[in-house]
Structure formats: structure tokens, C-alpha cells
């Protein structure tokens, strides 16, 4: 399953950078920290704090790209752009998709951690 969720070339690149031993620790940190970032996306959206929202999306996108979570990266890229354009209602519609894509990426990464 994870072959489609996680781009293996990107994941190998990350391994080369971090070393195989460290990658599990990195995945654990990602899995531990991301729920708070998603929570921040929700709360900043509710408070119409578009700048905080954009930074949170940008930050999560950076990690998603590092792990090779392609679908999640693309979604967050779109959200970051929508935030720049101040399109809050469109963001609201897509936030659910982000959570689903993250859920899938998280499952795949858990399987891949050694």
C-alpha cells in the first residue's frame, strides 16, 4: 500500500540524508507533532488568522515532501496558495482531505519504520 502513498525515491533520499538508524526517530517525531499542526490549522482558520494558517500548511508541506508523501504535499501546496489568496471558504472544504491524506501517509510511514 505504501508504495502509492509514499514516493520511494524521496524516501530513499531522506534515508541517505538521515541515515537508516535515524529515520525511525524522524518518523516518530513527525507522527507526534503533526496532529498539533493540523489542530493549529483548524484553530487559525476558525480565528480567520490566515497568516498562521499559511505558515502551518507550509511547515507540514515541508515535512510531507521530505517523507515523500506526494498526495499530502500537493494538497498542502494548494492550501498554502489558497491562504495566500485569502480564500478561506475553499480552504475549509479541503481541510478534511488533508486529514485523510495525512492519515494514509501516517499508516504507510508506520509500516516503513524499521
Amino acid at each position: 500500500m505504501h508504495e502509492t502513498t509514499i514516493d520511494l525515491k524521496s524516501f530513499e533520499n531522506l534515508k541517505a540524508l538521515a541515515g537508516s538508524d535515524f529515520i525511525s526517530e524522524l518518523i516518530d517525531t513527525f507522527l507526534a507533532d503533526t496532529p498539533a499542526i493540523i489542530q493549529q490549522m483548524h484553530s487559525s482558520l476558525a480565528a480567520q488568522d490566515v497568516d498562521t494558517f499559511r505558515r502551518a500548511a507550509h511547515s507540514l508541506k515541508s515535512n510531507a515532501a521530505s517523507f515523500g508523501a506526494g498526495a499530502l504535499t500537493t494538497l498542502l501546496q494548494e492550501l498554502e496558495q489558497l491562504a495566500r489568496e485569502n480564500k478561506l471558504s475553499e480552504i475549509r472544504n479541503q481541510l478534511q482531505d488533508v486529514e485523510e491524506a495525512y492519515g494514509e501517509a501516517a499508516r504507510a510511514l508506520k509500516e516503513m519504520r524499521t
Binding site: 540524508l17 538521515a18 541515515g19 524522524l26 507533532d33 505558515r55 515535512n63 521530505s66
Partner: peptide
């Protein structure tokens, strides 16, 4: 870097 994963990754790679 404000992002913890990025910080850890970069710090660890450079330490290596």
C-alpha cells in the same frame, strides 16, 4: 528552522 522535523534532520545530517 521552526519545524522540528526539519531541525532534527538537518542537525543530525550535519553532525554525521
Amino acid at each position: 528552522d521552526d519545524n522540528k522535523v526539519n531541525r532534527m534532520l538537518l542537525a543530525h545530517s550535519l553532525e554525521q
